[in-house]
Nucleic acid binder design. Structure first.
Lengths: 265, 265
DNA sequence: CGGTTTTTTGATGGACGTCAACCCAAGTGG
DNA sequence: CCACTTGGGTTGACGTCCATCAAAAAACCG
């Protein structure tokens, strides 16, 4: 299965098309370990040695930190086609744990090998730096969001982000968008702007209590912004939610590009 | 003035000593623009094009984002010897503003040139990735801190961090520690664990109101942890503050903690 | 169908923001 | 030397957001 890594990079960086054959060869030469996990599996824990560069191929994962009081803070979610815990690439040990939220398949590339290959080509180096920078910008966004906005805004923002990112999920083999249900927690998912996450996950991600998340959602329901399905939340009025969230960030509208074009096969 | 960049890198990475002569030559070949700023000067604003790699040579700066309600969130402080807004290196435009907190001198390297040189050597590439990763780990720490700890803990943590980082500040020319007053806001500063930041800065950094910061500080005073000077806060009981904060910055994370649930079975 | 997980709702209280003062050191100008 | 200004610090009253506790209602899962 060649090009999984390349396809992952291709989604976020148009420049990838400028890669030379040599670069592509370098990337394709790294063979990942293919790992499968059930729902709610622990991929690694805090403190464990960090030896891999992890690319999510299928399913959804999240990384988190445990606090003294037994709570956990979810730091970020990872969707198909995204690189997980990129920031910990150069650490000896993981600072956060990684857990699957749904049945997942993960490609684990050898860290040393990745660093090695990437630093062999100037273009790849820059691409890589780009990648990390992007992750950091996203973290900054979260910092501001968590520290400065009220629960209503945070929840609205979170729903929109999950929705947007799951819509962007790609199939690593073909490089094209995933049309099938990307959020497997809600089995009935599928069409319609359905966000399939349990409320406890929202709470842990936003630093809120599950009770309060529920209350906020209830008010959203009453106002007609969302509807709760069996499990999962259906977004009825995305524009309205964006207004609540104060959707300012530099997230591109993602003009539905067909990524298959770039995969010359 | 050779080696300023090298000295900056040398502090955080012992591996720097493994740099080849060629690497050192590469780094020394980049001549920065030397910028001077008065206290409270704007280095750049949100949205302005980002064209430089910024190294703080003297003084203290902070980057921040402005919110709709007129407040600002301080994202990070930068001390002498540190690279500012590293995460925005690969962005077209700045996502946050940078302001000097005291009279500062900043070395501005051309971004393109930096990226170019760093990607010319595998070792430099890795070093650079290391650098960014470290910045990201720090951001993660802040995210958890802001979202999960109460004001008392956050303030204690902040005081300790500022103290620790200003103590680590180095002189870029000699590469040795700065012994003179690193926190010029409090002019009377100097010896003694004095943290010279105004309360409004603490508040903006932690997402608290200035009033509440003041209250927390008062309780710290009453408990004998700190003493307020003309301007600035003197840390009297660092161990006590660390206990309150529940974490000591820049020190090796305590022993192994066992997070396993007590799910007998 | 029971056992489990998730959602929902109410009641209560603490943490923290907001408003509105007042204090105090330092500087300025006469 | 004193009036005035200015920027930060300090303090109280009050309200709100949100956590916590507790418990019931749904939904799921064999």
């Amino acid at each position: 299965m060649p090009g999984e890594l390349i396809n992952a990079l291709a989604r976020d960086f148009g420049e990838i098309s400028e890669l030379t054959e040599a670069d592509r060869f370098l990337l394709n030469g790294i063979k990942p370990q293919r790992l499968s996990f059930e729902k709610d599996s622990v991929v690694f824990r805090e403190g464990e040695p960090a030896s891999s560069f992890l690319l999510v191929k299928e399913g959804i994962c999240f990384n988190h930190r445990h606090l003294e009081d037994g709570n956990r803070q979810i730091i970020d979610l990872y969707f198909p086609g995204e690189v997980a815990v990129l920031g910990e690439l150069s650490r000896e040990c993981h600072v956060s744990g990684l857990t699957t939220f749904s049945r997942s398949e993960i490609l684990a590339y050898d860290k040393a090998e990745i660093k090695d290959r990437f630093s062999q080509s100037p273009r790849l180096s820059r691409l890589f730096i780009e990648l990390i920078s992007q992750a950091q910008a996203h973290l900054t966004e979260r910092l501001v969001g968590v520290s400065r906005y009220c629960a209503k805004q945070r929840v609205a923002y979170f729903l929109l982000e999950v929705h947007s990112r799951s819509a962007r999920a790609i199939d690593l083999v073909s490089g094209s968008a995933i049309t099938t249900v990307p959020l497997p927690w809600a089995k009935a998912a599928g069409k319609g702007n359905l966000v399939g996450v349990p409320q406890v996950l929202i709470a842990d991600a936003l630093g809120l209590s599950i009770v309060h998340v529920n209350r906020v959602l209830r008010r959203f329901k009453e106002a007609g912004y969302i509807r709760t399905r069996s499990q999962g939340i259906e977004l009825l009025d995305i524009d309205g939610l964006e207004k609540i969230a104060g959707w300012s960030p530099m997230r591109e509208p993602a003009p539905e590009v067909d990524y298959r074009e770039s995969t010359d096969g």
